[in-house]
């Protein structure tokens, strides 16, 4: 086979894959948001509600403002949107194969496409929600624009990939042990409180810090704030640590998916 022909083959299969991903995203948009445009508003309602409630809560316990001169809205919005989006990405990715199994009948649709389609749609939603809420805050005067927008975008993508890795691993695990799924809701609820959403790591006693610093979600949230506010230095968190989590969860998730593929089809 000549080199040109194999390039042609590659081009063709990329075209097919592109078509499949595009078709999957349009399909997912419909099942995720419904046919009406109001559906898209729902994606905004949950983070807005949480930001609103916790801003009030923050005021009620008499805290004037977050530490290190961070503004209220960006302080809470970065962490809450990151947390919710990551939870959505992880749960949508983990059920991607199970809920679209009937589509695997089409030879051009692979399990990988199903997951990639969902990841792209959820990441786009994540970015859109972020832009609308922060942008709205800036226009209304509740926030100043991010100091390092490009680094912020990179961190958003890190967050999405971390969610994807966790989602793939969870999907592989729940395929074999469906009962694990029951523990996910309480686990995510717990994560809401221990991922640095309402506080910064620095504010905590050293003994608590030493435990929470293992949590990769806390890392991306702190990194997100450090990207938003120029005066905030990353404290005990790093992109390198998140990298390891993304690599290991993705690798394990894909490996398990391969190993258990036959068992899945048997049903």
């Amino acid at each position: 086979m000549s080199a040109t022909r194999s390039f042609g083959d590659l081009g063709r299969s990329l075209t097919v894959q592109g078509r499949v991903i595009y078709a999957l995203i349009l399909r997912e948009m419909q099942s995720r948001f419904g046919r009406s445009n109001i559906g898209y508003l729902w994606a905004l309602v949950e983070p807005l509600l949480l930001v609103g409630v916790f801003t009030l809560g923050y005021v009620a316990i008499g805290r004037r403002s977050p530490p290190q001169g961070m503004e209220f809205l960006p302080f809470l919005a970065t962490s809450i949107i990151a947390y919710l989006s990551m939870r959505n990405i992880a749960s949508r990715m983990s059920s991607a194969i199970e809920s679209n199994r009937s589509l695997l009948l089409f030879p051009q649709v692979t399990p990988f496409d199903l997951m990639l389609g969902r990841l792209l749609l959820e990441t786009a939603t994540f970015i859109a929600v972020f832009v609308v809420i922060i942008g709205g805050g800036v226009i209304l005067g509740f926030a100043s624009p991010p100091d390092r927008p490009f680094l912020l975008l990179v961190t958003v993508i890190y967050t999405a990939l971390l969610g994807a890795g966790i989602g793939m691993l969870l999907g592989a695990i729940t395929m074999n042990f469906p009962w694990v799924d029951h523990f996910m809701r309480p686990t995510w609820r717990l994560m809401l409180w221990i991922s640095g959403i309402f506080f910064t790591l620095k504010q905590l006693p050293m003994s608590v810090q030493d435990i929470l610093v293992w949590n990769p979600i806390l890392h991306v949230i702190e990194l997100m704030r450090a990207a938003y506010f120029a005066q905030v230095e990353p404290y005990r968190v790093s992109y390198g640590y998140v990298n390891w989590w993304i690599l290991i969860t993705t690798f394990m998730g894909l490996l398990c998916e391969r190993m258990f593929r036959d068992r899945r089809k048997e049903k």
């Binding site: 075209t15 078509r19 078709a23 349009l26 399909r27 419909q30 589509l103 089409f106 051009q108 649709v109």
Partner: peptide
Amino acid sequence: MSGADNIRFIARIYG
């Protein structure tokens, strides 16, 4: 999903 939605999906993946 509706029949039309499913047709749309299949049409798209077969180009």
